[in-house]
Amino acid sequence: MAAFFQQVVSGLASGGIYGALALAIVLIHRATGVINFAQGEMAMFSTYIAWTLTTNHGFSYWPAFAVTLLVSFLGGVGIHRAVIRPVERGPQIRVVIITIGLLLLLNGLAFWIWSGEVRAVPSPFPAGTIDIGGVAISWSDIGTIAVCLTSVLVLSAFFRFTKVGLAMRAAAVNPSEARLVGVRVSSMLGLGWGLAAMLGAIAGMLTAPNVFLDPNMMQAVLIYAFAAALLGGIDSPIGAVVGGLILGVGLNLLGTYVDFVGSDLKLPAALLVILGVLLLRPAGLFGKTVVKKV
């Protein structure tokens, strides 16, 4: 039974990371109405910035963390301004292709600047485990879960209790009416991209200590984040986080206890489950079915 709970906790930790990146995807989807395929590479790029700050510029971990968040935020706003805004009003697929271009660009840029060498990134959390009722839980799992939950709570407070957060929600839900009441819609959408880039940076920095940093680090995480966002409903921030946690725990248990699945069929199994959920509830677990006006 202890082994079972250990799997659950480590599943929650990786699920928290999926959830954070899924939340970033949901934010951009609400702001721009598209899936951002470059989300993972943006997170990877941010993580390299954190790495270079600590390794080459003598920052200690948490200041580097803060600076990276700021740089990522500005980067996200900049990307929106430079390449997304010009095509925002056209068909979705054009924006999707732009984000695919960004994916290639950022991935190549990281290879170019930092080379493909695999780098070890120290964890900000103490090593070792803590014993809770016979279950050994590592500090890094606890830390990861704590950071993910904190960022989600801060973000939902921001959307609920601040004027800017409210304006952002208005701009996403109904751009034309939001504009009528004086919301600067385009800036709000850019802000959405900035926040998403920040969340991605958090997900990246939490992933790096577990898997080593290299330019392809976030690709698998991105796919799980997509799955999490779909599972929860691509328009629902809560859904993204819950979807991430369900996926993290589910995958861990599936890989451990179902022999046929093992580690090589984890991804297809996850995708199959999600496909099933989509067919029964096309809008995901927490999503609302949109009724189209004619």
Partner: peptide
């Protein structure tokens, strides 16, 4: 041909 550069070119041209 330096590592990463072709992807940068490809991505930029595509965008």
């Amino acid at each position: 041909k330096s590592p990463g550069a072709p992807a940068v070119v490809y991505g930029t041209v595509l965008i």
